[in-house]
């Protein structure tokens, strides 16, 4: 059925984004810039992995997919549908903050709309986690503002991270073949509509912080993730993430 395929595609890409970004952000655990920020950032990374778990659970319970542990830990990179933004390695805190800012505003707007999705389990989940997402975007915005107004170096580093991440962030909105079905079935108004809302939102915040919004009309979006074409960074991440599981495939947890 078209409707089922369309929902599955949406759930998989959302779940894979959340799992991979959650893993990336958890790389800061124990080495965050301050103890307080370490706790906050790790906690949000954990929230993301929780979102992935809940989305995989819907796939398992409603579409007969494997259980969440298998979906998370036993698929090859050729089965992942995450966007390239979440795969990129953690280079410095400026980049991680900017990625968190760009991704989480998109995620927030996506879940906001999904609260009204005609597919009830997803609407329920969107309502359940809206508080968490509100915190994630608030945290991201406070940091971006602070560093934009900190000193010359902090401002320059945030601006260059924005410039660098933007083509990848546009890859979040890579359209799927099911856009029309999702609209007709009143599940989701589509990636294009989401991107328009997102650009409006972040442009206002970026400019308010005293930074410059790159001209996205001349940027080439980094696409392919939704079709399972990935950067060279995803495989090493999956290898590391599944290292313990692979030591003993049949261990019970």
């Amino acid at each position: 059925m078209h409707r089922d395929e369309a929902i599955k595609e949406l759930l998989f890409k959302m779940a894979d984004d959340a799992l991979i970004l959650g893993h990336r952000n958890s790389e800061w655990t124990g080495i965050g810039p301050t103890l307080e920020e370490d706790i906050a950032f790790s906690s949000m990374a954990q929230d993301k992995i929780g979102h992935a778990f809940q989305l995989y659970t819907i796939l398992h319970e409603h579409f007969g997919e494997a259980n969440p542990d298998i979906l998370g830990f036993k698929r090859s990179e050729k089965e992942f549908k995450c966007c390239h933004l979440v795969e990129l390695p953690t280079v410095d805190y400026a980049f991680s903050l900017v990625r968190h800012f760009l991704f989480d505003y998109a995620d927030g707007l996506r879940y906001e709309e999904l609260q009204n999705a005609s597919f009830e389990p997803l609407a329920q989940l969107a309502k359940k986690i809206k508080g968490e997402i509100k915190y994630h975007t608030m945290h991201a915005n406070v940091w971006i503002k602070l560093l934009a107004q900190g000193n010359e170096e902090s401002k320059a580093r945030i601006q260059s991270a924005i410039n660098e991440a933007m083509p990848y962030a546009l890859g979040i909105f890579e359209p799927s073949e099911y856009e029309k079905t999702l609209q007709e079935e009143k599940i989701f108004s589509g990636e294009n509509a989401l991107q328009t809302k997102w650009v409006e939102t972040i442009q206002t915040l970026i400019e308010k912080a005293g930074l410059e919004m790159p001209d996205i009309t001349i940027l080439k979006p980094q696409l392919g993730g939704r079709k399972a074409y990935h950067t060279e960074h995803l495989k090493p991440l999956l290898d590391e993430m599944t290292e313990v599981v692979r030591m003993d495939e049949n261990a019970s947890w």
């Binding site: 301050t34 103890l35 307080e36 706790i39 906050a40 945290h139 406070v142 940091w143 503002k145 602070l146």
Partner: peptide, 20 residues
């Protein structure tokens, strides 16, 4: 107590530090 750069950030960090 906690360390922060301004009031706004103090509130954001306090949420995870003390409200969780």
């Amino acid at each position: 107590s906690l360390q922060a750069a301004n009031h706004e950030m103090a509130l954001v960090l306090a949420k995870e530090q003390y409200g969780r």
